[in-house]
Design a protein around this nucleic acid. Structure first.
Lengths: 206, 206
DNA sequence: GCTGCCATGTAATCAGTTACATGATTGC
DNA sequence: GCAATCATGTAACTGATTACATGGCAGC
């Protein structure tokens, strides 16, 4: 239910068309909230009928016309009300964690390439964030309110990537150790499928 | 599309009924993948017709009967295939980050209680994780493959909470500074609604 | 008598994804 | 000639959430 609000913030930061918003959702805002262009167009129409945003049709030379949206007063009011609502608990979807636990019932080594791919992706994103930080916030003491809030969100992204990177290295080390363990012992040779099948497990980790 | 697989992992770790699974999804597995009981019952039926899991009806004294599900061979095969598929990019939904950027167009101080509530929640979860780690993994060198993988996932949760806690303190410090800035200056008194309205913003943070 | 736990479900709705469609312009 | 970018949309489907429903037992 927050796509409306994410769009509002983006339009307050800078008015734009549905297409432009879709591009922003592939970049800056998209790090925190994903949306496809179909979704965006649908929500924009709803927001317009609700009076949250206003449209201006802009004719262009050589390019299709576009509808430039900007936040209207009722939208601002709705945003202020939303800020005062309690935050709903974030629904987590961390597929990699599920896969790591799943690896116990298959060959742990099979996961290594995937985790490496992830690791590299996070490393690249961290480098990208750090570059962006140096470019956009070179003098952190001279920033206005908006920039300081953008900066603290970016710092969150940077710390998240740093932490994830370190954790994925930990995961890789664990997987490699387990792969070495199952490879060397003499018993249970062949497929490499390590399935302990112990009935006792009540490690709740609750 | 990974709820099936999360359920499979949970049933491989320990067979159980839909109700028991729903409770697990409020606890251990639920940290990485959320699901309500309605969703779980629906997926369990689909998985059963697909032959991924087998059922055993268990009559109980004083309590309603339950259907105890366990992972079947085709389910294991499907899990192994899934582990070898490329991981789809995680769709992020970080509402708090959107709200922080939104605070620039309203009173930043209005967010402080919410962020504090979040901070406290993450601190409690971190303490809980650390307690669970001490209880379930007291001797990290004597663990089997399954436990070592569970442990590395738990370490990820711990590091995530630590990082989030530190970041939320950073956010709170920023919000409090901004609240102090808008409270003290003589100009633009009254509502405390700080809206810069500068047209120049093209800080892409891409 | 009320709340809470165990245990399973149906129905309606909302959000999000995937596939398909159009059409002009710019650059290789 | 082909792919990519700009720009907007429809339609069908899958996944997730919310609300409602049932019913016995245990403990206060």
């Amino acid at each position: 239910m927050a796509l409306e609000h994410a769009i509002l913030v983006s339009l307050l930061e800078q008015p734009g068309s549905g297409y432009e918003l879709a591009r922003r959702f592939d970049r800056s805002i998209g790090r925190f909230w994903t949306a496809t262009h179909q979704q965006i167009y649908r929500v924009l129409r709803r927001m317009e009928t609700d009076g949250w945003i206003s449209v201006e049709e802009v004719a262009q030379d050589g390019r299709p016309d576009k509808k430039v949206y900007s936040a209207a007063a009722p939208g601002r009011t709705a945003l202020a009300a939303w800020l005062r609502e309690p935050v709903e608990a974030e629904t987590v979807r961390h597929e990699l964690a599920v896969r790591i636990r799943a690896a116990a019932f298959d060959d742990p080594a099979a996961l290594i390439p995937e985790v490496e791919r992830h690791r590299d992706g996070h490393a690249a994103l961290l480098a990208h964030y750090l570059y962006g930080e140096g470019r956009d916030f070179p003098a952190p003491d001279t920033l206005d309110a908006r920039q300081r809030l953008q900066h603290v969100v970016l710092r969150g992204g940077i710390e998240y990537e740093r932490m994830t990177l370190a954790w994925l290295d930990d995961v890789l080390a664990t997987l490699r150790e387990l792969a070495a363990d199952t490879a060397t012992p003499s018993s249970d040779s062949g497929t490499g499928t390590a399935a302990p099948t112990s009935t006792s497990t009540s490690t709740s980790t609750d």
